[in-house]
Design a protein around this nucleic acid. Structure first.
Lengths: 337, 337
DNA sequence: CCGTGTTACTTAATCGGTTAAGTAAATAAA
DNA sequence: TTTATTTACTTAACCGATTAAGTAACACGG
């Protein structure tokens, strides 16, 4: 059975395809009676318009792309939820692309967007992404693009972030208030702006409390969990940390794993804070003090910005910046209150 | 700056658009020299073909749809990972649709697929989905469709499932071996086939051990976490369960929450098993004994099946059924070994 | 009764590739 | 030498919807 097209409807009703098209889009040029006849037949034959014909002609696809490092992470999963809630509401379709933290993949994906496949892009860049020689600046000029969480600071584009510096400052201060003097920050990337912001907040808090920043203060981890575990355990054995801040969700669980392996008691031997949206944080052993990011709201805000830009081309999208605060949720992996 | 089209390349090289098109698809009709010239200019002008023009003509979009209830769930997140890994490998695009367990939304989404927007569909149905009057049977005849995990048993289509009956049987037996005599099964749906399979395995295990199946044995929960918490706490107070099996990840954490609220000790007062892929299960307090589903592999298997069908239309997709076993991972929320 | 609008359509071009069918020139076979 | 075949293209139709431009019929003000 062939797909029902506008031409079939036209033939059945002895009208032109133009009339059908206009009737379906409720054009004022078409009489009420004809509209009814068209709508009735369309419903009867279960007509569904071909989106690609429409996209080709209208040069808009009613589709947006979400480019993220991974999906098995509460932050990104919740962000997708937020994005999708807005997209569904606006009748947009959502293409998902996972970069798996690979800059190469990210570039290949972004290049494809020059084809007009999507009307807009929401992106959280990889840990490897640097501004230099990245197509992002170019892309942001060509199609509406909103960074969320992991932004590329050198690129002029809309941004939805959380207050990473402050959140890290507060987390660090919380550890210090709990008695920590040798705090380590687990970083997932050297170039990622949010990593740097978090490191900044960390350093500011150390400085504010006259604590030294040493070579061991910042631990650089990779995307490979095995390597990360290695780095972590080695560091925990060599230095006597009494507090750790994991700047990603994966790193937070890695810390628990390392402490278990080395029989380190949390929070007795070492206090831990994780940047994480894990719904199970409160049921962990011990329950994890977290910096909880407003993932859903960030996704929603990013999508909302994007759709505003899609609706009116005069909207100065690239100047938009929103910072949605994270919150420190104190639990039993730290001692202070 | 206008988008580069095949026509522009044609004009620059004084060739017809047909030649360009064929050169780009490496047709044998085109000389090696011309191909090189076309490729060189395409690279120079950064030509990216318009996917919608191509889709319209070829009647294939190189895009698949993934329809799932939610994304903030380790199972689905991992499944997406599996799907996406295959899709990226094959150069396909992935549209994500979240039903939020709403049958209405699911239907609306599926109806849209008759438009030819996607070449194939991977779906895990909502808890509300019933076979009756569902467009699924029709859709499966029209475009390649693979169910994964939550199948619609009445519909003839490819399926990737896990061994729910056996897994539930084993989980139940494990609780019984640990001394449980009053076991409750938390079910997320009355109509979902996987829920019924799990309930079956549960009942078979009870029967095999001469334990009674009572009205309190199966607890029906909803998608609303607040209502679920209510149901759970009420049930835990009224009946003296000594074992619980949560058949979804969300229900597993709900059990922990309820037990905490009622000061019930796990596993002392009550032992718990959760169908869950939570990476933090081992760090929960107490660590959670889980029925771990092969989420990534199921997603991968579903996508692989779909792409085989897309590659050769003679592939009998609808007859394909694969069962990938789950595994019981014993931890400290249960007593048996 | 004429000109101007308005209504309700139709015609045809268009979006940007793809592909069946055609063609001229070169080469091979008879 | 003539015919058949291959090579390397071009022409033009096509996918299905949208839309600018055109038109016939009718209404209305002057």
């Amino acid at each position: 059975m062939e797909n029902v097209t506008i031409r079939m409807l036209a033939e059945r009703l002895q009208l032109s395809t133009a009339t059908i098209s206009k009737a379906l889009s409720n054009s004022h040029e078409i009489s009420e009676e004809t509209k009814q006849r068209v709508l009735a037949l369309a419903a009867e034959l279960n007509y569904v318009p071909n989106p690609y014909a429409s996209s080709l002609r209208k040069k808009s696809s009613h589709t947006i792309a979400v480019v993220i490092p991974e999906v098995a992470d509460s932050f990104f999963a919740e962000a997708i939820n937020g994005i999708e809630s807005v997209a569904q509401d606006k009748g947009y379709h959502v293409l998902i692309y996972l970069t798996h933290e690979s800059f190469m993949k990210e570039q290949a994906i972004l290049k494809d967007f020059q084809s007009g496949r999507v009307d807009g892009v929401l992106i959280s860049v990889t840990t490897e992404t640097t501004a230099a020689a990245h197509g992002l600046a170019q892309l942001a000029k060509e199609i509406p693009l909103v960074f969320f969480d992991r932004v590329c600071e050198e690129v002029t584009a809309a941004r939805i972030t959380t207050d990473d510096t402050i959140a890290a400052y507060n987390a660090t201060s919380h550890l210090i208030a709990g008695g920590c003097r040798h705090i380590g920050l687990l970083s997932a990337s050297r170039q990622l702006s949010i990593s740097n912001r978090r490191a900044e907040g960390f350093q500011q808090a150390l400085a504010a409390h006259q604590l030294p920043l040493t070579a061991a203060s910042v631990l650089h981890c990779s995307n490979d969990p095995v390597a990360t575990q290695q780095v972590l355990q080695t560091a925990l054995q060599q230095h006597h940390y009494d507090g750790l801040i994991a700047t990603t969700e994966k790193l937070a669980t890695a810390v628990y794993q390392a402490c278990e392996a080395l029989s380190l008691n949390i929070p007795g031997d070492i206090q831990v804070i994780g940047f994480s949206n894990l719904s199970t944080a409160r049921f962990l052993h011990p329950s994890l003090t977290t910096v909880s990011q407003p993932a859903f709201d960030m996704g929603k805000a990013a999508a909302t910005l994007l759709f505003r830009a899609l609706k009116s081309s005069s909207f100065p999208l690239n100047e938009q910046q929103q910072v949605i605060p994270s919150s420190l949720i104190v639990r039993n992996s730290t001692k202070a209150h």
